[in-house]
Write a protein that binds this DNA or RNA. Structure first.
Lengths: 117, 117
DNA sequence: CAACTGCATCGACGTCTGTCAATGCCTTGC
DNA sequence: GCAAGGCATTGACAGACGTCGATGCAGTTG
């Protein structure tokens, strides 16, 4: 367990002073931004639907033409979301012939979920 | 404007079949938006830092004046982020005298993390 | 009561983001 | 080769978001 500095409550501290402030952020801004970028990739309804569709598909993969319909979004928009998910390491793209097949990277979602612990 | 045009899947369309799957969205748009709203509350560097600070604090709670310093943000901005986290059910606010004390709602983060499974 | 302090709200501003139509690239089939 | 289809990229635009200064409000202190 991580023992940080004792933070005297305002009730304990003398006078009207609230913050004796030895309090230092255990999570620096840069790291926080990296984590936020990762979470932002998932924090979108369309992308959540895409992940659900891929997870529910029999082979664990699907091409763009199968995903535009259920989402009710245009093809460029779906392509955009798939790119975001891929760049976040959540999906892999494999081009077979004319079609681009996307599949979920196993364990990656759990990695992101683990951040929130 | 919402484009509701039906896009025939590769299975239905002419030519070589791409995906025989009768793939239907298991996650409707409305539910997806609810989940996204929840995740968006956490997908921000400042709010992640706030959660980290609160988790690291001895009593598991802190007042606003203890949080503005480490974050390097103005007081109204920190207040705004705390409001977002509170409305997402991640924090509770308790006013004691002049100060507003925020503390983490136990288990709530795990609930959100569980969504990604 | 008056002055002060901690916090929330408001209004404004620049930036990021989701979306679409149009276009271009690449592969397949004739 | 040429036409057609699948997908990515571009450009544009509206809305959402993060941030701050100014202001307002509720307790506390003198």
């Amino acid at each position: 367990m991580l023992v940080t500095e004792q933070v005297p409550t305002a009730a304990e501290s003398r006078g009207p002073v609230c913050c004796p402030t030895g309090l230092t952020a255990p999570l620096d801004r840069e790291t926080a931004e990296d984590l936020a970028r990762l979470l932002k990739a998932v924090a979108d309804p369309a992308r959540l639907q895409l992940l659900a569709l891929l997870k529910a598909s029999a082979a664990g993969e699907a091409c763009v033409c199968d995903l535009t319909g259920p989402l009710g979004l245009s093809q460029p928009t779906v392509s955009h979301h798939l790119k975001v998910l891929t760049e976040a390491g959540l999906l892999t793209r494999e081009k077979r012939g004319t079609w681009a097949w996307f599949s979920i990277v196993p364990g990656r979602l759990d990695e992101i979920a683990a951040v929130l612990r």
